[in-house]
Amino acid sequence: MKKLSTSSKVYLFLIFVVLYAPIFYLIFYSFNSGGSMHNFESFTLEHYNAVFEDSRLITILINTVIVALLSGLIATIIGTLGAIGIVSIKDKKMRKTLLSLNNVLIVSPDVVIGASFLILFTMIGVKLGFTSVLVSHVAFSVPIVVLMVLPKLLEMNTSLIDAARDLGASKRDVLTRVVLPYIQPGIFAGFFLALTYSLDDFAVTFFVTGNGFSTLSIEIYSMARTGITLTVNAISGLVFLVTILVVIGYYFVTNRSKRVNEEVQR
């Protein structure tokens, strides 16, 4: 493989600069004692204090995390069971139909999902708020879990299951002691993606949330519409920190499970 030429390196460098500059720009000014995102006066932590002292903001943060964790968990259960169910279907046509239906919500624009869920909730009389937001987040996270778990199930050697049955394992044992441990990395990946989907979602939540309930995205939107508030910068500093920690954590967990798998195979 040839080494990268200088111009290629410069190009890549510029792309990385452009990708990260806005994020660091936000974080840099979160320490500004002046109230704006230009001319940095002096270092301060007052905006971070403001975040932690604002009980409304803290409630919203907690709401966001609760919705993400709960919806991720429920979606992972439904999605994993769904993937197991899909694999057990013999009829090819039926299987294909289910898979196409599965992908509808992945490719649909957020606005359409949000609008149609709004109609749905109004029709069946679900009050807009925590429940509607949670249910929507579960709904759009299920297909991604299925897509993460399915390949693991398909690559699994079926003789493992036959062997377990021959050795007298009940159906339940086969599921909990053979299948689930095998597809575990897929389940984790699905749960993790569901979390990020939920944390990142704005459009769907914007449609199905009522007046009383708000997530971080919605709150930032309404703050940003009124102009620049350095509290938002402080929030982004915190979000960035958490993201980096999660990335490192995720990297660590997947690497460890990979190593464990390799050792088991040896």
Partner: peptide, 11 residues
């Protein structure tokens, strides 16, 4: 993975 809204706000 950084929230979309935050990145837009930066601009």
């Amino acid at each position: 993975w950084i929230n979309l809204l935050l990145k837009t706000y930066a601009f």
